[in-house]
Design a protein around this nucleic acid. Sequence first.
DNA 1: CGATTTCTGATGTACGTAAATCAAAAATTT
DNA 2: AAATTTTTGATTTACGTACATCAGAAATCG
Lengths: 341, 341
Amino acid sequence: MRPTVHDIAAVAGVSLATVDRVLNQRPGVRLVTREKVEAAIREIGYIRDVAAANLAKGRVYPLVFIVPTGDNSFMHGLRFEVHQATLRASIERTDIRIVEVPAFDVPALVAALDALQGQDIAGVALVATDAPEVRAAVDRLVSERIPVVTLVSDLSDSNRHHYAGIDNIAAGRTAARLLGRFLGGREGEITVLAGSMLVRDHRERLQGFSAVMAAEFPKLRLLPVLEGRDASERTRSLVSKALSENTEIIGIYNLGAGNRGLIAALKAVRPERGLTVVVHELTQHTRAALIDGTIDAVLNQDAGHEVRSAIRVMKATADGQAVIADQERIRLDIFLKDNLP
Amino acid sequence: MRPTVHDIAAVAGVSLATVDRVLNQRPGVRLVTREKVEAAIREIGYIRDVAAANLAKGRVYPLVFIVPTGDNSFMHGLRFEVHQATLRASIERTDIRIVEVPAFDVPALVAALDALQGQDIAGVALVATDAPEVRAAVDRLVSERIPVVTLVSDLSDSNRHHYAGIDNIAAGRTAARLLGRFLGGREGEITVLAGSMLVRDHRERLQGFSAVMAAEFPKLRLLPVLEGRDASERTRSLVSKALSENTEIIGIYNLGAGNRGLIAALKAVRPERGLTVVVHELTQHTRAALIDGTIDAVLNQDAGHEVRSAIRVMKATADGQAVIADQERIRLDIFLKDNLP
DNA sequence: CGATTTCTGATGTACGTAAATCAAAAATTT
DNA sequence: AAATTTTTGATTTACGTACATCAGAAATCG
């Protein structure tokens, strides 16, 4: 049988109350006694039964998710996953509140963060816009001992406790290699589409993409980035214009959202053009386009995993427990038409 | 607050004892009363607090993992992950026993399975060799109401409750497309290496690979499969021989183990040969080969995920609970040199 | 109808931990 | 050494569920 608090008490030669004081860092224990108890804990290899502890505590974790509004499929999916998490709230002892903030709107995000100060909150998860004001607001929360986790897009130089998202530099590099290898030594130009260079995830993807392109595929020339603001219609017109004006384009990398528009623009050109296309985020549209050959590869981050990981990390941080970094690593999924889920 | 058994009792107008009898399917409840209770459960949306229930029950799950011996990295990793799971045993209330059986040895596997009959076991996970005798032995356990999960390699037409592994047909198809696209329209021959056609995962990978190759890359001709028995030295000599005898080979797909031997053989030929290579299983050897360019892509299944998933499924099945299929889907990881973890 | 069987209620203990109270002991100060 | 403060012990209740026991009620049988 696994050891219990009673065993600690017996081994340490102290009472249950003292063991409890040590375990829960309550005051009123002399240093020597504390050390005796801690030695006993190590000796018998005691591990707190978290289930029993939570039961006794009746603890709930009030969590806040700050997510951008916007009608693109990815953010829609993200909000859906947070909502799914609220359905598991009673089982997981969480109490999740969703706060929506306009995308790329720094003051709104800061206001939403500041509104949380002083509240009884066990953790905050936010899709960060990478600005100094946001960093400052996050740091204010952190200094109030509120666990903060960035979701999908990280925040530079902040004290956030954790980032629940993919390695976007690696994602960009991977996109470059897929595109470069799929083009098999051909020569031509590559169009890169982004949502906004204000968010760190897009900047990092571009950075990784450019680096590998420059280093390993010198025959492929990158055109200036088109910013589609993650909006489909804008993306469609940008792509249509680019394709009609420049016949040298043989590859496209969309590192942001707005795939619906991209796909529409692609379907409007003759398939003989032989474009190779790599995009981010698996949605019903990109899935269909992958199957019908309009798109060649989709890089994906699983929003459900990210949300669940963020919740685990916030809970663990709130309890002062360590997180197992390896377990919380969000992986980059690569989908070809053959391995769709 | 979430509803408890007391709430059920109050709403149904019965005692706690009766609620308990209904919840745990104990005898001695009239049909009408039972229905009253069940109606109340639905009405208030009661969900059993599994943590509290397990605490009260003091339940442990005796589980058995049957894994092949063999020194290849993947099986080594799999055994390691099962061992890791034993370290979490007390937390997860599992009691895991590992049984090792020679690889591809049908009678030994059957004997190991039959030895479990009549024992007090909450679940069995096995890396299946796909043979009728094994299927029969598995079905015997299933008919004894013991949950059985196949791990990594599935068992045809058996009554096993679940398969914790990747879709190997999809894996083979994906490998074909990667290899085909990376070769960018070149013409030549492709060598396929396998461990043994006795295991279903290898057969399925080959099936998927061949299908896509035939349908979409007609310029690439498949050579007869080389069976390396998942042994490195054998694989090395087979590959060396093939490469020296046939200068038309431009691509290699290793769908089994034995990558150490393959890599050694590849390093022995001049890099100018320009081979494109896709293999399975990320190990320290394949990782290094990916980084130095000897290998172009690695398909991987995360043994840790598979083991943890198998445990969750066995526990749920033992408790008569449904498994969330989507959550237990094991994904195929694709690694290029840019997205290594 | 009474006797028997079947069902239901009331109650208590247990699981491992948290948290509180109050008394007692030990250490520290005066 | 007495007074004070700090530390420790003993005990109790609670969390939500499981499980057992025994008495009493309701249903069924003869």
